[in-house]
């Protein structure tokens, strides 16, 4: 599951780097990192408390 999630995020980043989508590429990268935290928290609720103490 995690592998598929990472694969999808990789595709998202690649797609975001295409000329027509590049306008906010930096922000997309930041959102992908934060989004990964949200995705992990939602996928593994047991991990969520530890994840969010990081912030």
């Amino acid at each position: 599951m995690l592998k598929e999630r990472l694969q999808t995020l990789g595709q998202l980043v690649r797609e975001g780097a295409r000329p027509e989508n590049r306008q906010h590429f930096v922000l997309v990268l930041v959102l992908v990192v934060a989004g990964l935290v949200i995705a992990l928290g939602a996928m593994y609720p047991l991990v969520a408390p530890f994840l969010y103490t990081l912030f």
């Binding site: 934060a34 935290v37 949200i38 928290g41 939602a42 609720p45 047991l46 969520a48 408390p49 994840l51 969010y52 912030f55």
Partner: peptide, 15 residues
């Protein structure tokens, strides 16, 4: 734990 997730992710998105 889901409550923690909601609060935590709320904080992350707010920041």
């Amino acid at each position: 734990l889901r409550l923690v997730q909601i609060l935590g992710s709320g904080l992350v998105t707010g920041l």
